[in-house]
Amino acid sequence: MALNRSSTRTDITYLSRRVKPAARAETSAPATAPPSSPVSPAAVTSLSLSRSSAPTSPAPATSAATPWAGARPAAETRPTRLFPAPGIGETRLLNAQTPMIRLDRRQSAIGSLLVTGATSAAWESPERVTGAMTVDGAVSGTSIKCSGNRPLVGYMDGTAVVALRHIRELRRSLFIGQPSAPLTVEIFDGGTVTLPAASGELRYILSLTAIDGVIELRAEPVPARADAAELWQEFGFSMTTNAAARRQGH
């Protein structure tokens, strides 16, 4: 069954800002709330992710004119479903033994994430706007420019850079280097991790996935001789044209 990626998931309520009065009024208008919607407002409010031991807050005001009307206790706003994973300070090397690390919310959101040794960087937004850039500056697909007039993913002095202020505009990214050279990741707090150079027929490339604002970095083993275009295809990066990106609101 084909996935419907065009509609907003109203059944996922965690870690979202409260609905402001104006927005609430708009979304509750009959014209924008199809009667056949599979999730009714009542169903949404009945879904509770809070634990019984979680602190409770006074009942929120019910008036839609009150900004606090949509406030939720933090227990409902914190995702707890991520499996345990080491942090960037717990390993120096991403390889077959430790293939993945997870950054915390601060590490995932402050300053720049740098990838040294990457000859190409590909990106995909939550709206599936996809593009790539080589260290030489050649761009495929669609660039994503952030509000600070910087690319979401780009290059600076030969080093790939991710603008973490806009991490929520990034779904995933792929960094590919020369087989003979390692890839090194560095974040604002100085934490680093390295992917080793190729060994025999295998090498590692770096996969970055942003899950609700939290970055996971993974070393992906690939054939040493595969070129960037083959790897983008293998990992499902289909470069979007500018026209397609415009249709998706970018």
């Binding site: 409260r18 900004p67 406030a71 933090a74 706003t77």
Partner: peptide
């Protein structure tokens, strides 16, 4: 913006009518 509520929920980022609103 990437940690929008304190653990007990007393402080939470809300909206952007100002640049930021914090409940």
């Amino acid at each position: 913006f990437n940690q929008i509520a304190s653990p007990e929920g007393s402080v939470a980022f809300a909206g952007t009518e100002d640049q930021e609103q914090i409940d």
